[in-house]
Amino acid sequence: MSNPASGCGAPDQGRDLDGVDVSRETVVQGTVTAAGKPAGGAYVRLLDSSGEFTAEVVASQEGRFRFFARPGTWTVRALAPGASGEAQVTAAAGKANDVSLTLS
């Protein structure tokens, strides 16, 4: 993000962490599945410990998503046509914290 005037939109969620200094970030990432298959295109929201909305991304074709949060407890909630799901994750700084979600 060298150009701060470039946007605030969520980038493609399928990309890897190349170029991101993970030691400075608190990454919360994972996969959304439905009936054992990746739920590409699901809307994934990051909610803070009080349930307040913090960010939302669209899962990649492989069902992947990623947030750059801060240490603490988060809820990840996913929405798809006629289905939803959520999971909690306790994130630590300087690493990728993995969390998986199932839609039902």
Partner: peptide
């Protein structure tokens, strides 16, 4: 912005890397 950005704990929405100049 989100409470964390407001408080100065994050510099961008949580779907973006945080390192920024400002």
């Amino acid at each position: 912005r989100s409470p964390d950005e407001y408080a100065g704990r994050l510099l961008a929405p949580a779907h973006l890397p945080q390192e920024q100049a400002q």
